[in-house]
Amino acid sequence: HERALMVNRLQKLTRMLRVHPDPKWKQEQQELIKRLK
């Protein structure tokens, strides 16, 4: 369940980064990718 939330968050971040590349979001995205591996 928590994994699904993280995947959701990651997808949302990816969409937001396409619109507005924010370093903070980029960092969070990298963190999520690490944790999901």
Rank of each mutant, 00 (worst) to 15 (best):
31 E>N: 06
19 V>T: 13
11 Q>T: 08
20 H>E: 04
8 N>R: 15
33 I>E: 03
16 M>H: 02
15 R>P: 01
23 P>F: 03
18 R>C: 15
19 V>E: 12
16 M>F: 02
7 V>R: 12
14 T>I: 10
6 M>E: 04
22 D>M: 05
21 P>R: 06
11 Q>M: 13
3 R>K: 10
12 K>A: 12
24 K>M: 07
17 L>Y: 02
36 L>D: 02
12 K>V: 13
19 V>M: 10
29 Q>I: 15
21 P>C: 06
3 R>G: 04
33 I>W: 04
32 L>M: 02
4 A>G: 09
5 L>W: 15
2 E>Y: 08
11 Q>V: 13
17 L>E: 02
7 V>I: 15
36 L>G: 00
35 R>S: 06
27 Q>H: 13
36 L>Y: 02
13 L>Q: 00
22 D>K: 13
31 E>V: 04
10 L>M: 02
5 L>Y: 10
36 L>P: 02
10 L>V: 03
37 K>Y: 14
10 L>D: 02
1 H>Q: 12
19 V>W: 10
10 L>A: 01
32 L>P: 01
35 R>P: 00
31 E>G: 03
17 L>I: 08
6 M>R: 04
14 T>G: 07
2 E>W: 13
13 L>G: 00
32 L>W: 02
16 M>I: 05
28 E>G: 01
18 R>M: 12
34 K>M: 11
27 Q>V: 06
10 L>N: 00
22 D>H: 09
10 L>I: 07
2 E>C: 15
29 Q>A: 14
11 Q>C: 15
29 Q>N: 01
1 H>P: 10
31 E>R: 06
20 H>R: 08
26 K>F: 13
34 K>Q: 12
13 L>W: 00
12 K>S: 08
30 Q>K: 08
32 L>C: 00
19 V>Q: 09
8 N>H: 12
3 R>E: 07
21 P>N: 13
8 N>M: 12
30 Q>A: 09
1 H>G: 09
9 R>Y: 09
1 H>A: 14
27 Q>A: 14
2 E>N: 11
32 L>G: 01
29 Q>H: 05
